[in-house]
Nucleic acid binder design. Sequence first.
DNA 1: CTAGGTGCAAATAATTTGCAGAGGC
DNA 2: GCCTCTGCAAATTATTTGCACCTAG
Lengths: 320, 320
Amino acid sequence: MDLSGLRPAGGKRSSKRDRIVQLFLAQKGHVTADELYDLVRGEDPGIGRATVYRTLQWMVTAGIAHKVDFGEGRSRYEPSLRHPRHFHLICNSCHRSSEFLSSDIEAILEEVTAARNFETVEAEIKVFGICEECRTGIKAPALDGAATESVFARDALRIAVATERSGLEFYSRAAALANDPRGREIFERLAEDEKDHLGTLEQRYAELIATDPTLEARPTFLFFKGAAQGIFAEGAEKLRGGVDDLRALLIGIRCERDSHKFFKKYGDRFEDSEGKQIFLEFAEEEREHRDMLIKEYRALQARLGINRPGRRGSTAPPTH
Amino acid sequence: MDLSGLRPAGGKRSSKRDRIVQLFLAQKGHVTADELYDLVRGEDPGIGRATVYRTLQWMVTAGIAHKVDFGEGRSRYEPSLRHPRHFHLICNSCHRSSEFLSSDIEAILEEVTAARNFETVEAEIKVFGICEECRTGIKAPALDGAATESVFARDALRIAVATERSGLEFYSRAAALANDPRGREIFERLAEDEKDHLGTLEQRYAELIATDPTLEARPTFLFFKGAAQGIFAEGAEKLRGGVDDLRALLIGIRCERDSHKFFKKYGDRFEDSEGKQIFLEFAEEEREHRDMLIKEYRALQARLGINRPGRRGSTAPPTH
DNA sequence: CTAGGTGCAAATAATTTGCAGAGGC
DNA sequence: GCCTCTGCAAATTATTTGCACCTAG
């Protein structure tokens, strides 16, 4: 692994430090300073404990390592590459920890800190308790370091598939309900797009699973509110009662905004370059969809003009 | 304060321990062992550091105190009476911390741990960063220990008011839309109930503010998704497109379930006995509302019988 | 009387630091 | 040659423990 980009300017080459860093990065989970010291000693008995501590400290300031405290009275360190903000479930019995991501929690924390005018540097969540294995004795599929990236890709793809599926349903229904022929045409076109996306995502998902068949059984890593039903599901639900065209457009605009956000956010985090490309491309297309819907909303509003029945609430489409 | 209930069976009376405990409980924020030692020394120089540590330890096992680690290399302790699960914002600059509650985060964590078959003992969230005062120099109204209870009551009442307001709107609309006269009658009756509740809550809110006029300016302590719009807001929104009576009933059932949960949960946590009583009473009434709606749903379903147009999705009301 | 609480001083355990020497640039 | 890294041992810091004594029940 090339570490040159990680070394801060002015840092000096040092084979010992390099060896410690390398050993550290090769570790799966969360290492103690002492554990790392023992590992280092195994390779080179001429390295002192202080150097390990100093290197760990340096890695933290350099952003390579992340200090975590599981309440054991000593610190643990994890490589901070990959997912910058994950949270921990820590077993009080076997002292192992597993990780998860939750955009929803991140979003709520943003709300809270904004309300308090607090500028977040870092958030940590630790859930202490008893893990499945310690409680039942049944060994559950683990989420070790190597698999994390694939599991992340799997979860992101699953959410994406659900989203496109719900999007397809939303636009199909909207097209069926639409009174205005131009509006119907747009809904039909967007339904087609979502169908395309769905195909691409399902194929990528199948490819991913093919590379590692154990992947499907592994526990969820990325938790996301829209995951189960898809981001458009609520919108599709709203259409059930029957709505006018303007309202359908409005709902679509909101859903596209959310799904754009989703694809952008997780596209950025993807390690797998193919998945990343798909996500970022889709993010762009969802943005285009949204613009198209906004334009159509304005146009339809103008066409309906003043003879449109008055209604409480805003009539302008959201612009952000 | 009577501590007899807090002392574990077999514990021996001890004036020194009692004094330490009392001093600890009188503290506002999060004390370190050493800070407490200094405080204790001020009152009785004959108390040793070890006794303070031992008492702190004892308080933790007895459930009186809660150990928190803000990453300073030493532990802090806070009284664990009152709100059992709050989270912390910690300022890296002035090292003070402020607290918040979020039911939404609690709910998400429950989902995550359930998915991993993890049995939670305790969850902690720490957000590190820079507080408003350190960043801007403007002193913001604090959330000190004494005020926390009142601020909690204020926030709970605000959410409750919003909920009843949205409930009133929901039932008014539902009554206006209802085709079935019996259904309309029920909706009208529930609207009346919500109006009553609203009056009670607004009065209580005014009383609370009267006891401490600075209360309104203090920052939010209890964060809750339904807070801004009220728990029925989404339901009321759904009615906008126009729905049939069965669907309106179904939406009402869901909203009543959520608002029952809300009143129950926070009623249990209320310290202020008047607020507590109101909340628990309302929780009961919301449960009755829900039962009423479910009964009506079944009755209407039966009355409409087989000549009701078929529709995808479940036709049974949720039972939990 | 006796179990448990308490003070003092010494022990522990993780981590940091002073300093003399080694090594990269 | 200079500046930084490094090892070793000593220092530091929060917390715990051994032990003799004390005190409430």
